[in-house]
Design a protein around this nucleic acid. Sequence first.
DNA 1: CCGGTCATACGACGTTCGTCGTACCATGGA
DNA 2: TCCATGGTACGACGAACGTCGTATGACCGG
Lengths: 121, 121
Amino acid sequence: MTEREPSRALAHPEPADIRLEGVLHALSDPVRLVIVRELAGTGVELSCSYFELPVTKSTTTHHFRVLREAGVVRQTYRGTAKMNGLRRAELDGLFPGLLDSVLTAADAEAARLGAPSARPA
Amino acid sequence: MTEREPSRALAHPEPADIRLEGVLHALSDPVRLVIVRELAGTGVELSCSYFELPVTKSTTTHHFRVLREAGVVRQTYRGTAKMNGLRRAELDGLFPGLLDSVLTAADAEAARLGAPSARPA
DNA sequence: CCGGTCATACGACGTTCGTCGTACCATGGA
DNA sequence: TCCATGGTACGACGAACGTCGTATGACCGG
């Protein structure tokens, strides 16, 4: 709840605490899937404000938190910005091939549905 | 033909209507994940009553319905029983490798958590 | 025909989810 | 110092979810 600590630190689940169900659930939301695809596509850390999502800032914060608590992304403060990076190594170690196949599937579906975004040419 | 039409037909989404988000959501429930793992492990069609799930019959029906409507399983009546089979071909065609990696991940997690009902092929 | 078995439908209930708005805090620069 | 920028916390709300119990329907074997 109310942390009076420096609190500029964010809690991340350790690999042993990451649950497949949680990851799948995190990935089952369209907005979050867009975030993950973009993160994977660029391969670098991106700030929350980098993303242009069809939701408000509050909701964006919420989605990033869900991703972080599921163990999908790692968030670190960098000045006023909060950078987000995919936890690829941990995820691949825990669930080999899962992230890649989800990403591939998302690309395939986007192409199938004629969605243009999230594809860094 | 000697093919007998099932008295009650069940609606299944066509491959083109299967959504990745829907599949991931269907797979993100522990009970449904158990069902899918068992279906994949045996490789044959299983009746609803075959499964020993920690929920009532009503809830079991509900979960099978979610899986069917997401396009994960195919259900066909066979007498009073309803047989359930994984839609492997369709899923693999739509999202190559996805099902396998989820299944592998589920096995890995089950082993990691000390699962009792793991199903080594 | 009649009962038994397998599964469904429907309604209910509490929980979680996705969304928003508003108020607030933390950092960095003018 | 003060303010602009980037993000958070909290509360609210409707919708969807997972669960159950009971009543009902479909099929098979006597």
